[in-house]
Nucleic acid binder design. Structure first.
Length: 747
DNA sequence: AGCACGCCGACT
DNA sequence: GTCGGCGTGCTC
């Protein structure tokens, strides 16, 4: 996310200057339907009039759509051609801040403005009247005829001190039939009132249970508190390893936000992690926040959306799409584990919730907090450039931030053919076994073996849809393509030459490594952890928890172990192939490997009991390996940033990936070349175009794919230029051109 | 998002 | 000759 400057006029769909303009019945106005239109359409105000920001129902073709009153009419059509809006909806109006945010988000992500409104209104039942229910309390009168059943109802209500009940619930609790309650109400002994069906969220108390903070935590918390209290824009990078207390620190920012009477949003990358977070939240503030994620259900989403819009929900905790909720007054956005790839929406409208969070804070005079132990390169670069304020949390229990890191030079310690655990690593594991401690053997490759080769004719088992090799999954008895998911049974004989028993499995996967570990450490209890072995997310979590609690001595795992769960008994991490991922054309390979290996190695030991990590490598002098060994991440990031600039690859900030794909290779290539030729138009706008790369054309899921890259200096109108450029080139039939504004996807 | 319009393939 | 595939465009 680039600089967070205040809103600038001129962007498409900018909120009208007259922010709460009133439009009396019949007056022309513009309103934005929640469908993929790229600008508001003109309508006439409905009976009773409307204001900018009001939710309405707009006729669109033969249908009616949810829409938002945007501002004065564009006057592109004469007023006699305009249709009147159907009606004003009983929903809290959208604030000018949120409207400006939606406009800028559309501009930044190249998503149609109406589609962004749709993201902001994805809750069920918005066009229906809010559901109400009848509640009964004790009325002023007593009934003339008193019966035992009636007495029970009255006594029950008296005992509950004015608390209201639904009729059916009251009858059940008082142990009477529904007729008794009805009779009492008719006699005037009970009075009824209507209340919203969705109960309000419990009030949160910022003073409920403030934790004792370390001096370093308190310093960071104070910086955040001051920023929230100042009610202006700022973004912080809150950096600290697991266990440094990041969560406690940003919870204090939430507390200050509550004291300010503004709303806070906490984005979490994984729904699976929310339950633990919610418990923690409740212990701090005495009640649970509103939740926003797909698993919350229709009722939950409706309740959360309305409470966010009305301001009743003080804090919303949610997945990435929560960033588009129409908050009434958002004062703080926290993005936890900001480097996490799941903040990126890849299907349908493409956006990165982390970037949207920063944009939203900038336009709403709010504080954004990006929390991570391993920030994304672009976040790190933004902090270095002074756009984000950086807060570093040291380890609470002393300087032992990372485990002792050591390389095992595989050129000197090569294991025998068909094995992958070196002697030094085996020794280290045996030491742990003797002490009753856990070891983790890490290999970032699922399955048994990455390559199956015929010893007879040399044929390798490739995917019929991609160029990728098929990976043998021995536990499933299948060959699987990790690119496209295609799978087939493991053949008995070579499909090329027909020779039986000639197929050889080459290279290690996690299943094979587990086999080797069991043979190598026969007395140890081994456990295999791989995402494709789990039946369900729940089951996987339970399994990880059991292993973390000590059910295994040697864990053999894929990158799944890098995230989430802590392993308190773990004191050794052995990285089987630290070089994996450093090869290949991915510009982000070094950065990704660096982060992954640090995260995995960081699982070893705890702050008070540092562990060790052994990296098996054939290239101990590779800069990435050296950076991981030295732990000097600042230098590493500096180098990565500089190298990208030197290579002419877009550095940071304003850039876009352009994905050209289709089923016909020649058509995809011709379209990519046509786009490249039209790049002159981009260059006039100060942008540069890279590609298409001369490398062989990629095949993914049966479609050919070519990538182009566009970069523009800060301040260049990249979005507008991209729009014009794309419009100027007609893709060949069947070819699609997708512009991806987020850097993570294409680097 | 729907829905109509429109231009090329296989068919009673 | 037509029926129908879904690519493209429009909705105030």
């Amino acid at each position: 996310m680039g600089a967070a400057r205040p809103a600038k006029a001129g962007a498409r769909g900018e909120a009208a200057p007259d922010e709460d303009a009133f439009f009396p019945e019949g007056a022309p106005l513009s309103a934005l339907p929640a469908l993929p239109v790229d600008k508001p359409l003109d309508y006439l105000a409905p009976p009773g009039g409307v204001r900018a920001g009001d939710w309405v129902e707009a006729p669109i073709g033969p249908r009616r759509a949810l829409a938002l009153v945007w501002g004065p009419p564009s006057a592109e059509l004469p007023p006699d051609r305009l249709k009147p809006l159907a009606r004003r909806l009983d929903l809290p109006p959208m604030t000018p801040e949120t409207r400006r945010f939606l406009a800028r988000a559309a501009d930044y992500t190249l998503i149609e403005l109406g589609q962004v409104l749709r993201l902001a209104s994805r809750a069920p039942g918005l066009r229906e009247a809010p559901r109400m229910r009848r509640l009964l309390t004790l009325g002023p009168e007593r009934p003339e005829r008193m019966t035992p059943a009636r007495r029970r109802v009255i006594a029950f209500l008296e005992a509950h001190d004015g608390m209201p009940f639904e009729p059916a619930e009251l009858a059940r609790q008082a142990g009477v039939g529904p007729g008794v309650v009805k009779g009492l109400e008719a006699a005037g002994a009970l009075s009824a009132r209507l209340a919203p069906h969705d109960p309000p969220f419990a009030r949160l108390d910022p003073a409920f249970a403030p934790p004792a903070l370390s001096p370093a935590q308190d310093e960071a918390a104070e910086a955040l508190r001051q920023s929230v209290a100042a009610r202006g824009y700022a973004t912080f990078l809150l950096k600290g390893v697991t266990g440094s207390g990041k969560t406690e620190v940003y919870m204090e920012a939430v507390a200050e936000c509550l004291r300010q009477g503004r709303q806070a949003l906490v984005l979490l990358p994984e729904i699976a992690l929310t339950a633990a977070f919610l418990d923690r939240f409740e212990r701090r503030f005495g009640a649970r926040p509103a939740e926003w994620h797909s698993a919350a259900g229709d009722a939950g989403r409706r309740r959360c959306w309305r409470a966010a819009a009305s301001g009743q929900a003080q804090v919303v905790v949610g997945a990435r799409s929560a960033v588009f909720l129409p908050f009434r007054d958002l004062g703080l956005v926290v993005v936890d584990e900001e480097h996490d790839g799941s903040y990126k929406q890849e299907d349908g409208p493409r956006y990165n919730a982390r970037d949207m969070a920063v944009l939203r804070a900038a336009l709403g005079r709010a504080t954004a907090v990006l929390a991570s132990a391993t920030p994304a390169l672009e976040t790190w670069a933004n902090a270095r450039a002074g756009k984000y304020r950086r807060l570093d949390l040291p380890e609470r229990f002393g300087p032992a931030v990372m485990p002792r890191m050591q390389a095992v030079d595989m050129r000197r310690h090569a294991p025998p053919r068909g094995e992958w655990i070196s002697e030094p690593l085996a020794r280290a594991v045996n030491e742990r076994l003797a002490r009753g401690e856990q070891s983790l053997l890490f290999i970032n490759r699922r399955g048994y073996a990455p390559l199956t080769l015929c010893r007879g004719c040399g044929a390798h088992m490739g995917c019929p849809h991609c160029d990728a090799w098929l990976v043998e999954h021995r536990l499933r008895g299948r060959l699987v393509c990790h690119q496209c998911g295609h799978s087939r049974p493991v053949p008995k004989a070579c499909p090329e030459c027909g020779r039986a028993d000639a197929l050889a499995a080459l290279g290690p996967g996690v299943e094979r490594l587990a086999e080797e570990a069991r043979a190598r450490f026969p007395k140890a209890r081994t456990a295999l952890l791989s995402s494709d072995l789990a039946q369900s997310a729940e089951q996987l979590k339970a399994r990880i928890a059991a292993i973390a609690a000590g059910e295994a001595d040697v864990i053999i795992g894929t990158q799944l172990v890098a995230k989430g769960h802590n392993f308190p008994l773990l004191t050794l991490v052995g990285v089987i192939d630290a070089d994996l991922g450093l090869k290949g054309g991915d510009l982000r390979a070094a950065e990704k490997t660096f982060q992954l290996l640090r995260q995995v190695a960081g699982r070893a030991g705890r702050a008070d009991r540092p562990g060790a990590a052994l990296l098996q490598t054939y290239a101990p002098d590779h800069p990435v390996i050296r950076a991981i060994l030295s732990g000097d991440e600042e230098t590493f990031w500096e180098r990565e940033a500089a190298q990208r600039e030197a290579a002419g690859a877009p550095p940071f900030g304003r850039m876009a990936g352009v994905i050209v794909s289709g089923p016909d290779e020649a058509r995809v290539w011709r379209t990519a070349e046509a786009l490249a030729r039209a790049g002159a138009a981009l260059e006039q706008a100060g942008a540069q175009l890279f590609g298409p790369a001369p490398a062989p054309i990629a095949r993914i899921r049966g479609r050919f794919r070519v990538r182009l890259l566009v970069k523009a200096p800060r301040g260049a109108p990249l979005q507008a230029a991209l729009r014009a450029w794309r419009a100027a080139t007609r893709p060949e039939p069947g070819v699609s051109v997708v512009i991806d504004i987020d850097p993570q996807s294409f680097l």
